[in-house]
Every structure is written in C-alpha cells, then in structure tokens.
Design a binder for these strands. Structure first.
Length: 248
DNA sequence: CCCTCTGTTGGATT
DNA sequence: CAATCCAACAGAGG
C-alpha cells in the first residue's frame, strides 16, 4: 500500500480533503494482507470488504482506479500480487473510507434513496418518491430520492423520456413517469455497456463526446435536428432539445 | 503572463 | 424551498 495523499482517506462521506481521517494511513494499512471480498455498490458509492476490515469508496468528480505505472495525481496505490492499482483523483473530491466489514452495507446506503438500477422503480413508485415542486432534473440528482444519477445521466435520461428538465417534478403526468422509469434504466444500462468495451469514462479524456445532449449546446438534436439548448438548473448546466422536450 | 470561466459531486448558506 | 456559494484543481479561452 502506498499513500501519496493522506487527505484522500476520510472518516465519512465528505468531498473535502480537510475532512481527512487523522490516522487514515494506519487505518488503511490495517487492510493489508486481508483477502478481498465481493464488492458492493449503491448509487455512486462502492463498498469493498477486506474482512475483518473494509473500504468505502466515492470517486467524486474525477476519481478513477487505474492499473500499472503511477499516474499523475495518484492519491493511493493498492498492490494485488504483482499489480498495483492507483486511485487517481486530480480534483481531490474522491474519498476512501476505512470501515469494518460488518458495517459496510449500512454505511454504503446511509442517506440514499433506492439504487436507480439495482432497485429500479416502476412509474408510480418513482412518482411517489418525487413529490416536490423542484425541477425534475434537480430532483433526479438528489441522491436521497434516487441514488445513481448525476448531471450527465439525469440530462440524458430526460432526453430519452422527452421531458423538459425544468418541469416541476410534481407536474409530470403518469405517462411521463412511465417513460422516465424506462429511460433511467435504459440510460444507465447503455452507459455501462459502452464502458465495457470502450473507455468512454469522462468527456475530457479525449475522443468524441459519447452523449446525446450533454455538452452539445448548439449542435443538432440527434432525433430532430433542432439545436440543443443549455440552461442552468440548481447551479449546473443542463442540456436538452427544445423541440423533443417541450417547455412546461 | 494573467485573468475568467467551466467542470463528472455534494453540502452549507442565503 | 430554490438559488448561490464553496471545496480543490486543471484546462480552455481571451
């Protein structure tokens, strides 16, 4: 185990290096020699047992695990046999949280709604979790309502469902909830499939933009050709097609 | 070179 | 409540 940045090791789900665990490196070192168990996921969080210890992981905005030579911005390296896997995280919002194996599952799900893929909800159940006047796009990104959608996949799911991102969540029709329920699952499944035989991880890693509307302001909608629009919702850029996703 | 803007997350503040 | 700011850093553009 190699710790390049002790502040990547946190005591709780925090995006801030200042919330580093004081004895973080020692707590991580306690995992050395343990046999890895089956990793678990809930929303954007990971839990990885190394009984009797374990590790909770959040990649933040820019975190990734990469094998091989030490990359720039390496925070922690874990050795598995001959291979070293590096936690690389330029923006330092990612967190590695030591946690007893017995507590992993609880802490993994604490404060989160159901996982958008593992516990996908049919339309009516989805609607029940979104009784708010907040814009549907903002509500979709609230991990306490539904866990797993961030800025990119919330926008992409709304495009698939043909729903304008600024519509108040509690104003959607039954048909729209049904469409959104399917769109969320389809979006996440397709995104995961694309990553398994490609490397479409982040927009900034070079290569073409793999998304239908995200990051495509002014470009033609892939469905109707209308220029993609961009607005800010909840302080974040949101992309949509003004024709396929009509305003409320 | 310097300054400003933007960003894949999430929490606190206003 | 909804909008704004902030954390921390890099890259792009003026």
């Amino acid at each position: 185990m190699i710790v390049r940045d002790p502040q990547a090791i946190r005591g709780d789900w925090s995006t801030r290096p200042r919330d580093a665990l004081p004895d973080g490196p020692a707590r991580l070192a306690a995992l050395v020699g343990a046999e890895a168990g089956e990793p678990m996921r809930h929303g954007k969080r990971l839990g990885w047992p190394f009984p009797p210890g374990g590790l909770l992981i959040h990649l933040g905005m820019s975190g990734a695990w990469v094998p091989g030579e030490e990359p720039p911005h390496a925070r922690v390296g874990l050795r598995f046999g001959d291979a070293v896997w590096w936690f690389r995280d330029p923006r330092r919002f990612g967190a590695l949280i030591p946690c007893p194996a017995a507590r992993l599952a609880d802490r993994l799900a604490a404060g989160l709604g159901p996982d958008a893929l593992l516990a996908a909800l049919p339309g009516p159940a989805l609607a029940a979790r979104f009784r708010t006047r907040a814009a549907i796009k903002v509500a979709l990104m609230d991990q306490g309502r539904l866990a797993g959608l961030g800025n990119i996949h919330a926008a992409e799911a709304l495009f698939r469902a043909r729903i304008h991102p600024a519509i108040p969540a509690n104003a959607l029709s039954d048909d729209q909830w049904e469409a959104l329920s399917r769109a969320i699952v389809d979006q996440l499944r397709d995104a995961i499939d694309a990553q398994q035989d490609g490397e479409l991880v982040y927009l900034t890693e070079g290569g073409p933009n793999p998304f239908a509307v995200y990051g495509r302001e002014g470009e033609p909608c892939p469905r109707c050709g209308t220029p993609i629009a961009r607005i800010a919702l909840g302080g974040r850029s949101t992309f949509y097609c003004p024709r396929c996703q009509p305003a409320p």
